Amino acid sequence: MTTATQNSTQALLQRTAKLTLSVPVQCTLFLLLTATTLWTVYFSSYAPAHNALHETRHSTLGVGCH
């Protein structure tokens, strides 16, 4: 690799790291992960998960599941 290519690659890696470590990106990823986890658990048809969160689902969502 030439020096110019190495500098260009390093600059790209630094910009990528700066973007991915920024607070807005971290907050967005956290919210997406939390929402996906809650959606998966709340609307699971897997019996142990359904039974464990049955009352929580009804009290927080205000909807029936049967």
Rank of each mutant, 00 (worst) to 15 (best):
T2P: 07
L12T: 06
V63C: 06
Y42D: 05
S59K: 13
L61C: 04
A47S: 11
L13Q: 11
M1L: 14
A4P: 00
A47H: 11
A49E: 09
K18M: 02
K18L: 03
V23M: 12
R15P: 00
C27V: 05
A11T: 05
L38F: 15
A4F: 11
Q26P: 00
L53S: 12
V25T: 06
T37N: 00
W39M: 00
T16E: 13
S45Q: 05
T37A: 06
T5H: 13
V25N: 04
A49K: 12
C27P: 00
T28F: 09
T16Q: 12
T56Q: 11
L33N: 10
T3E: 15
A52C: 06
H66M: 01
G64A: 05
L32E: 11
S44N: 07
V41M: 04
F30N: 04
H66Y: 06
H66P: 01
Q26M: 12
V23S: 07
T16Y: 13
H66A: 02
V25R: 06
V25F: 11
L19M: 10
T56N: 07
H54N: 09
A17Q: 10
T34I: 09
S45G: 02
T2S: 15
T20C: 05
A4D: 13
H54C: 05
N51D: 14
H58G: 03
V41G: 00
G62C: 05
S22E: 07
P24V: 07
A35C: 06
Y42E: 02
N51I: 06
A11K: 10
S59L: 08
T28L: 08
L53Y: 12
T60I: 08
L12P: 00
H66K: 04
Y46R: 09
T20F: 15
W39G: 00
